[in-house]
Design a protein around this nucleic acid. Structure first.
Lengths: 342, 342
DNA sequence: CACTTGATTGGAAACGTTTACGATGACGTT
DNA sequence: AACGTCATCGTAAACGTTTCCAATCAAGTG
């Protein structure tokens, strides 16, 4: 593997000049640039990123931290994020971390050692995030959760207006005439109305508020079933919910994965969607468009979330601007999973 | 951020000794170790990974290269791979790359700069892989494709016996009495019987061979529709296939994503699965367990693939053993998507 | 012509580690 | 008492860059 030293020797210039060519600075003669570039190409020279990072005490890479590796929505968000970073001509490495709190601390440690030039966080629980984020000093962005209340001035955030969107989901069911509506998913604390900025919690809050506005009664103890974010969890939770409260005519699953599991659970209990029970999901993940029946859902604009997030981050890396917090529009996508109650 | 220098100063030992403690070598007194470890904890010292990598001209990390970011099966494989690496107490970074050939070359460049201590490749087309892999010198493993024919002695591989499994899928349909069977997915070259070690291609070959053995006629021009690996592609391909060859009574989709798209396409054409057309998928991804009807599929043992792959890699990193090539068992999982032809 | 200016370049220090090597002292052996 | 062995530790070089500073030279200016 050729080093900058070899390139200097072969081209007849000093390593300083070669370095200037690599980082294409202005103070290099056209002649030297041409010559050195030729040698670099010919030798297949690739600057050693560790030496660079060490010297500048800052990596030239952005790191993406994904909290919840098996989450389909985050996977899709990650895809778009990677693509957008690529469009800027940058590259990014990815670190997946589990939901557990200590995992977050571990990731924080790693990041301190790596010294990325910027950080993208995808997903995660706002509460635990608050405590661990403080160790970071590089420009960062949190996508798909609102970080405004956290008050870090190097952390932007871009998210769907979950509260509003939760209301929209509820409205989709209420407007069809449903008065007995269940809610599936979320953290255990959500039933107690714990103050948290988490997207999922806000979805629930928004939905419940909409139900109240519409005069539909909702009782957490009876009509609500919290569970983690997976199809299997949705399956189990739906069974629990419906055996406890069999008179429900509709349900709002706060993520599509849950909805997919729930729909299957309904069927296994002999209920057909939407004939016997209506269902609306949240996220707009791809599989949603191919379920039978097609799932109605709140579609987050994953592409725009990723684009705004990445653009903001890279801008702040180069220009030192202030952090911003922005809501990205969502869209209700009707499917075949909502009908009038029988 | 404290450096090894600071730790040395504070603890009253030299940086050499501190370094020895960090890398827990034997030639350090118990007293020194205790003292230095205390200071490290107290200062929250985190060794600079770039300096380490630079000095040892080798990163302490394993890199995972995933070829095809939106592929659900690979996402699941990635999840298990990450988990297994974590179980070994190691950590890994992930690089996603697009399918295009030049992307692979780009990734190769990056990896040369980063100097990982090991490389895990997930997915990818064996043919283009052959040409770009040669630049790598570190121990590597290819999971979910067979690299035996490539003949690199630093590259192990662990994969499902796709040819056998393809036969199994075909048998599941034939044994129910189907004689008009279509195949969905794969690379355009597959119809010409191009010699390639790709898993998907082998699945098709195995299925066709099984059909021939059973005396079922199969004509690539009529009964086969290649397409990329996504639900949308499966949806489109299924429509093309069935409008061209409406007398099919069953189909084998060489990945579950394709099958999910295909099932929806059938429905949109007025066909019910399995009443009007049977379907079998491949991979055993999670959503498959929640479709309505539940999809019959060939389930790859993702967990074992990941485990064997990671274990082999880490073993070879520390012990310098020979590369191995191993087939991991698969399992036919029956669902509700196969019935007798009408 | 002496001097300033600007463009271009080379030299060397620095980034934070690891590690080969040598030094020190304690201890046992002859 | 002289010596060898062993455990422990400090010193300094090295890894491959970037960047500050100084040096050189050409060209313009008074």
């Amino acid at each position: 593997m050729a080093t900058i030293h070899d390139i200097a020797q072969i081209s007849g210039y000093s390593i300083g000049t070669v370095s200037r060519v690599i980082n294409n600075r202005a103070d290099v003669s056209e002649k030297a640039r041409k010559k050195i570039e030729a040698v670099i190409r010919e030798q297949g020279f690739q600057p050693n990123s560790s030496a660079r990072t060490l010297r500048q005490s800052m990596s030239s890479e952005v790191y993406i931290v994904v909290r919840g590796i098996a989450n389909t929505f985050l996977q899709s968000l990650l895809e778009k994020t990677q693509i957008r970073i690529g469009e800027h001509g940058e590259s990014a490495s990815v670190q997946f971390i589990k939901e557990a709190e200590d995992e977050v601390a571990v990731a924080a440690k790693i990041m301190q050692g790596i010294k990325p030039k910027g950080l993208v966080f995808l997903g995660g629980n706002t509460n635990t995030f608050r405590q661990t984020f403080s160790v970071f000093t590089v420009p960062s962005v949190l996508i798909s959760a609102d970080a405004e209340s956290l008050g870090f001035d190097n952390l932007s955030s871009f998210s769907t207006d979950d509260r509003d969107a939760g209301g929209c989901a509820a409205r989709a069911l209420v407007s069809k005439g449903h008065r007995r509506i269940g809610i599936l998913g979320g953290y255990p604390g959500d039933a107690e109305g714990e103050q948290s900025g988490n997207g999922p919690s806000l979805r629930i809050r928004g939905a419940v508020e909409e139900l109240e506005r519409s005069g539909v009664s909702f009782d957490f103890a009876r009509d609500y079933e919290p569970c983690p974010f997976s199809a299997e969890a949705g399956y189990q939770a739906a069974k629990r919910l419906l055996s406890r409260t069999p008179d429900l005519t509709a349900a709002f699953a706060i993520s599509d994965s849950l909805a997919i599991g729930a729909m299957r659970a309904f069927r296994d209990m002999g209920l057909h969607t939407p004939r016997d029970i209506s269902l609306v999901g949240f996220d707009g993940i791809v599989p949603t468009r191919y379920t039978i029946p097609r799932l109605a859902t709140i579609e987050q604009d994953v592409e725009l979330l990723a684009r705004r997030g990445v653009d903001d981050l890279l801008m702040r890396i180069s220009c030192e601007g202030p952090a911003v917090h922005e809501k990205i529009p969502y869209r209700f996508v009707n499917g075949e999973s909502i009908a009038q109650p029988r």
